[in-house]
Write a protein that binds this DNA or RNA. Structure first.
Lengths: 205, 205
DNA sequence: TTATATAATGACACCCTGTCACCTGTCAAA
DNA sequence: TTTGACAGGTGACAGGGTGTCATTATATAA
């Protein structure tokens, strides 16, 4: 979490810094992100930067948190539009994330950021009390229609969420690391969601 | 890939270096791994190191490749012992990976390495022709009993593999990042595999 | 105007990676 | 025995990085 000093910054200065951060994240992946380059572009001193952020990682947390906020808003809307259908939700989450990339700079930003999400396990996997990751799912839970799901055990619902988030994350990585044709990935992701619905086992005796 | 110079090294020297590498990987995660510390411990010069490995990443590739080799052997044995049951295979893969941690140093080694696997997307997700990741699965495919699976479309099998590997990876990460009690993770992983078998949707009308 | 708190600064200590001109030892041919 | 070629070894160096801290500047309150 950035310090209060950061949030108290005059708007102009804060925005300049935010732009510098966004540009640097667009340039390279997190491990290559250079604080030197950021402070130079934002025209602030080294010391100031460390008055705003505890360290480099703190800055990453901030960036990811901003993304999550927007994602949550979108996710809630999706659930409300689809009667709490969790499969539609997860399809929409991928779509939303991809849609960030309309313009060129946003595209590179996401590329680097989501390559990093694999690094930054904090994003999906964080709290011990939430081992399936996506702790922010808690906020969405009330909006999910659980009746359509075959929940037999108290852990079943959490495990379903866990599986869905694992699959969603890999699809996201596939898109942003340009590992496969984007449409192909989306198509396969859709099919994966269908596979999750119906199960892997052949029931024809 | 390390150079031929590396493989031609006298056994004693090579082993000393390999130990230094293993110790350093046990100490910290890849981004903090210090070549300085390695060459000091192995008592070789900086220049020598770069005669063996192209760069830091080349060394990581080498370490992961060694792991994969052993994993493959184990996976084949698992499939043969279980009539090609892919669910048993994936359960065994997690068990195998965890079993690397019996002794303390191995434990830390895996902790750091598997935290890095999230970084090193090469490990699971690599070739464009293999977008679901785990290209090494190709080698195992002939041993898998496909009849038990509800494969309706030509992509279905690949997608099932993709889902299984995503879920397996997250369980691995959960264990090595100490995000949850190990037994709890294993229990949930087992349940997740059952959920994949039977599907998420409630079929009672 | 003075006192106090808050913010800004940049030199500094200490770390890193990858390169390159040079050194050493070995071995085959002359 | 001398020569030369070559694989392997070396460490100083260039160019980078992060986080700290004593000091200076600015704003706010008394």
């Amino acid at each position: 979490m950035p310090t209060s000093t950061f949030f108290n910054l005059p708007a102009e200065k804060r925005i300049k810094l935010l732009c510098a951060i966004r540009d640097e994240f667009s340039r390279v992946q997190f491990d290559k992100v250079s604080i030197n380059k950021i402070i130079h572009a934002a025209e602030i001193s080294r010391g100031s930067f460390y008055q705003y952020f505890a360290d480099k990682h703190d800055m990453l947390d901030f960036v990811l948190t901003e993304y999550k906020k927007q994602m949550l808003v979108h996710a809630k809307a999706s659930l409300q539009a689809n009667n709490g259908n969790i499969f539609e939700l997860f399809y929409d989450i991928l779509e939303f994330t991809i849609s960030f990339t309309t313009e060129e700079s946003g595209h590179k930003f996401c590329n680097n950021l989501f390559a990093d999400i694999k690094v930054n396990s904090d994003f999906y996997l964080k709290k011990p009390e939430c081992p399936n990751g996506m702790e922010w799912m808690n906020e969405l839970q009330p909006f999910i229609n659980i009746n359509m799901l075959d929940v037999r055990d108290k852990e079943d619902f959490n495990n379903m969420l866990g599986i869905l988030s694992s699959v969603c994350r890999d699809a996201t990585a596939e898109v942003f690391l340009n590992l496969a044709d984007r449409e192909h990935t989306k198509q396969n992701y859709k099919q994966k969601l269908e596979l999750l619905k119906r199960g892997f086992i052949n029931n024809k005796e």
